[in-house]
Design a protein around this nucleic acid. Structure first.
Lengths: 216, 216
DNA sequence: CCCATTCTGGACTTGCTGGTCCATTTTCTG
DNA sequence: CAGAAAATGGACCAGCAAGTCCAGAATGGG
């Protein structure tokens, strides 16, 4: 059963008509993302973004007529797209215990590196419920992420490494929750123990499944 | 091995000397917590808090000389203390499958009721790394929460319901991460599926443990 | 080459919000 | 009951940051 072909990116603003315009717009979004990751949403002003991207006030409002909210939303989309990309190619090939292990290492490494800033979480809190688009971005990201995990689990099932009785969707949802929570806790406490525990326990749960005899 | 007797609440500000003062201070913190939960940190001003609590500017700064940050920190501590209280008495008595089930229901109900506002997460993001106290509050809360879960698991082990081979600390850490992530996802998407999946999978993992034959 | 459109620069306005200050009232203590 | 300490009211201030505006430069199509 193929999933509905939801477009991965909903165009917040029609990209500028000219090539130069598109370049400037992209520069703004990427630069803003940098600043936001460094300083946090609460402490970042349009002037900071302006300085970093070498643009003027009028450019900011030219490309994002609705102001800061619209810009933040664009950055949120930009960051959301990066999240899954950064886990590739492993996340797309979770068809062996080894690939799961490699993916696990990658996730831990990536978030430990990222330190104590969760771009998306912070962005979402700032933009908040005011913009319905914010919720859509996060929802879509979670859906895709979970789907990739589920696909990996089904691949293991197909290989006979995991019981076909396993409730893949629920297990994938739980694993995703564990990752999210692990990251959240790490952001708050600086300790990645919980993230590792969630990943390892989640994978161990796959292995421990009945009819899953093969252990590498 | 008894844990270090860390005081559960670190006094951010010495409570006012007179009874009236203490009452006013408490009123401010509680009222502020309400407003913050309703509006979110980013959209709440001192004037909102002033209006809600029926106080004047000078009172706010009289009881929180360091201004908004100090007040937010006090609210964060207030909210943190509530989190575990709200899960009692179940959380303190996780010594049977039935009590685990009841606790699970309570957690789901409580967070579904709370809707899309995570007081602590938002507060932490606003106060941020500037105040070292913020991190301490969250860290301590996580520590206590995880400890209560671990204690419950050991209780099951003592009753022979769960294998003594289970790595209790790691399993508790993973479960806590799952809860956190489940709540986070629910805040963002409005869907409690992940929270439930994390809880159910976590508890199922206890049941599936080797030497854990008793299933109710 | 010309004109419309797009893009850019930066000064300016404006509203808000955290924070200050002091006068006044209430409460505690001896 | 007096005097000190605490608590309260609310006007006031200053800075900042989002958003506006218009003039001028680049660009691109015909």
């Amino acid at each position: 059963m193929p999933h509905a072909p939801t477009p991965p990116t909903l165009p917040t603003t029609p990209p500028a008509p000219t090539a130069k315009g598109r370049a400037t717009r992209a520069r703004i979004v990427e630069g803003a993302a940098e600043v936001l990751r460094e300083q946090g949403v609460a402490f970042t002003t349009l002037d900071d973004i302006r300085a970093r991207t070498g643009t003027s006030k009028s450019q900011l409002f030219h490309y994002f007529p609705d102001g800061k909210d619209e810009l933040l939303l664009a950055v949120a989309q930009f960051e959301a797209d990066r999240v899954l990309e950064d886990q590739q190619p492993h996340l797309g090939r979770l068809d062996s215990w080894e690939s799961w292990r490699q993916w696990r290492e990658l996730v831990v490494e990536r978030y430990e590196l990222q330190g104590d800033h969760c771009p998306l979480g912070a962005l979402f809190l700032q933009v908040g419920r005011s913009r319905p688009g914010a919720r859509a971005i996060v929802t879509e990201l979670m859906r895709q992420w979970q789907e990739q995990l589920a696909r990996g689990m089904r691949a293991l099932q197909a290989k006979g490494l995991v019981s076909p009785a396993l409730d893949v969707d629920r297990t994938a949802a739980a694993l995703l929750a564990g990752i999210q929570g692990g990251v959240t806790i790490m952001m708050s406490t600086g300790d990645s123990t919980h993230l590792k525990a969630a990943l390892d326990t989640g994978i161990a749960h796959l292995r421990a499944t009945p009819d899953g005899p093969a252990r590498t």
